[in-house]
Structures are given as C-alpha cells and as structure tokens.
Simulated assay, not measured.
Amino acid sequence: MIQKEKKLLMHVGPVNILDRVLYAGLKNNVGFTSQEFVEAFQFSLKKTRELFQADNTYQPFLIPGGGTSAMESVTSLLKEGEKVLVVTNGVFGDRWINIFRKYPVKVNVLSAEPGYYVEPETVEKEVKKDKYTLVTFTHVETSTGVRQPIKDSVKAVRDYVDLVVVDGVSSVGAEEVKAKDWRVDVYLTASQKALGVPPGLGILVLSERAMERLKDEKSIAGYYLDLRNWLPVMNSMENGKASYFSTPPVHTILMLSEALKIIIDEEGLESRIKRHEKVASAIRAGIEGMGLEIVAKKPEAYSNTVTGVVVKKVNAGNVLSEIVSEGVELAPGVHPKLQGKYFRIGHMGWVTENDAIVTIASIERVLNKLGEEIRLGEGIKATQLYLAK
C-alpha cells in the first residue's frame, strides 16, 4: 500500500512536478487583472523568448489549452487554398494532418516508418518540386521517441517555403532549441511536458515573418484560437497592464512563471539539457543492458525525453498495469503499427538520476515476473555504470 502511494510518474506528460512549482499555483483569490498575476504573465512571456532561444523580434504567446491548441492556432497564418506539407514520424506528427484537413487548405504528407524520421534530403526534394506556404516538423515524436534533426531539416527547406513550423511539445526545455539561429517561424510547446508544469497552456513564439502574416485578415482561423485575438493581450501583459480576451488559466501561469524561473535563472538551459541527456542515456543503457530493443532505430534519433521499449513475449499493456504495483507509472505505446508491442518511458521535466535507477529496476522485476526473456540484473548494472562515468 505504501509503495503504491509513493508513485514515480515516468509518463510522457503530464510528468512529475516539483512541490515548489505546485505551491506557486496554490493561491486563492487571484484574479486575471491582479498585479500578482500580471507580473507572473509578464515574466513568463519574457522568459519564453529565452526558452526558445529567440530575441525581441519574436512574439511569444501563452494560450489556454495545450500542445494541440498551439498547433491549431497556426491556422491563423494561412489563407484559403494555400498548400501545407506535413512531415511526420508518428501519431502526433499525424495530428497536423487532422488539423489542417478541417480547413480549406491543401495538405501533402511525408511520413516515416515507426522508429525512423523523414530525412532532410527527402523533404528538400519535395519542397523543390512544389510551392508550399508552410512546412511542419515534429522535433520529438512522442509516440515513438524519435528525434527529428531539426537544424538540418529547417536548413534544407528554409529557402523554398514561406513558413517553417516546429512542434516542440516533447522537446522544448530538454533538447537544444534555437528558434532564431535556425530561422524557425513558429516554435511551439505545452506546459505539461519538459517544462514540468501541469497541463493547461499552449506556448508559442512567432518570427517577424509569421507576424506579418497575422496582419492579413483573410486567415482561415476560427475564433478562439485565432492569434489575432490573443495578440493584444500578450502585448498588454508584457507591458505590465491587464488585458482580456478569454479567461486565462491563472494558476497554471503562476506555476509556469515559477518553473521558468528555475529552468532559466537557476538551473540554466544548458545544464537542464545535459541533465535530460544523461538521464535518458542511462535509461536506454539499462534497457539495452537487459536485452530489450528501443523503438528509435538510430542513436542519433534517440531523444532526451521519451524512449519506446519493444517487448517480444509479453503484452505491453500487462507491463504497464503490473508496474504500477511497483510504484512506477509508464506510458502506453500508441503507434497503431506497434500496438501491444511496446511501452514508453517519459524522462522529462524534473527527472533525476535516481528516477532512472528506480525505473530500470522496476522494469526488470516486472518483466522477469511476467516471463519476458531478459538479462535480469544487467539492466540496472548498465544504468549504474553509465551514471558512474
């Protein structure tokens, strides 16, 4: 019973949250016009630029919802009949297809098999053949843990398309992100992933080129997620003045402000990325040490935030239900081509080296109990050896 109460959440989002971040939101009677809230919003907008490695030429947005609301708000930049290329490595890259097909634009798709990413050269060849207004990439595909080489991918298409959009929902705050240097027009994320904040916010930065598109009133966007409606609020809040379009998630923004203070001013982005890389690598060392296969097929495609683990004998769903009794919660595999064959480990946010050790030890015990053929004890040994380097 005690073990179940003391749970380690190694999920792909939401994730474990620092008490300090949670406490920042445990406040009563905070209105969206209060000075306390306006200051938290103002601070968060300024720090969002730093988070994405953008400068003052980029406009930050904090909008209610999550990663999907941030994604759909990109329709604010499109007009009827324009052509969009979706580059997808899995389920959440495919979400762009489902979003854009609700609107009067033309959608083409380049997709990869599970475990792989679409090569930058393949994307470059496609954008040279046809005129695309916008191309979307997914930095880390949450369904497989595959990391797209964003710098090279953007470079390959930058001179041939008007707008480059990157979904950084499972990367921002844990992977290298350089919106300005890489000339990305829209970089987006959500509060509940590597930033280690509860769900509730879609977070974006837009380049000058993207902001110019916002001036065109012929946009296909709807109402709630039209960034034109949110822009006056962002401008006013950044200037320290309360503003309103629709009620913001007040307490989530209070928590985001605290998290960004820790991420940027205390831990530092570079140190945070290195921590994620170390924990992720230690977990993968453990998985491979016990003799299991990782969904991502190439080491350069391994991400700092998600690892998909393939099982050969047992059903992945049974692993998930059994490991909860060990006090650890993992994420199910959601890619339809690998259904029942894999599970996912989320290692992002406030994740530590000790979390890696607990996770690998728990996975070993559960798989051994269920009858999966593993090298019992070799996984935790490999994790420890990696961390001891």
Rank of each mutant, 00 (worst) to 15 (best):
V127D: 09
N16W: 02
I97R: 08
A382Y: 11
I380D: 08
D94G: 07
E124R: 14
A24Q: 04
H139I: 06
S76C: 12
I357T: 02
I203F: 03
G377K: 12
G202E: 08
G377W: 10
E322F: 00
I97G: 00
S76T: 14
V314Q: 08
A156W: 12
D94W: 10
I345V: 14
V197D: 04
V324C: 03
A210G: 08
V21M: 05
L225H: 11
V233D: 08
L163G: 06
M71C: 05
D265L: 12
E82A: 02
N89W: 04
K241S: 14
V324A: 13
E238V: 06
V21R: 00
E141I: 10
V309N: 03
V310G: 00
V334T: 12
A190V: 10
E288G: 01
G81M: 11
V295Y: 07
I273A: 00
R344P: 09
Y224C: 00
K128Q: 14
S191T: 01
V15D: 04
K313D: 13
Q35K: 15
V74Y: 05
H347D: 05
I323F: 03
Q59N: 04
V161E: 09
V166Q: 05
L256F: 11
L225V: 12
K155R: 09
N354M: 09
P14L: 04
K27R: 14
A112E: 14
V184Q: 03
Q148W: 01
V118H: 05
I283W: 01
V109F: 00
S219F: 12
E113A: 11
E5D: 13
F92R: 06
A356F: 04
I253N: 02
I323K: 02
F245R: 10
S246F: 11
S281R: 15
S219G: 12
A259I: 10
G240H: 05
E36Q: 15
F32L: 10
K83Y: 09
I360W: 04
L206M: 13
K178D: 15
T136M: 07
K7N: 09
N354Q: 12
N98E: 15
V177M: 10
E372P: 11
V172E: 05
L78G: 02
S111N: 14
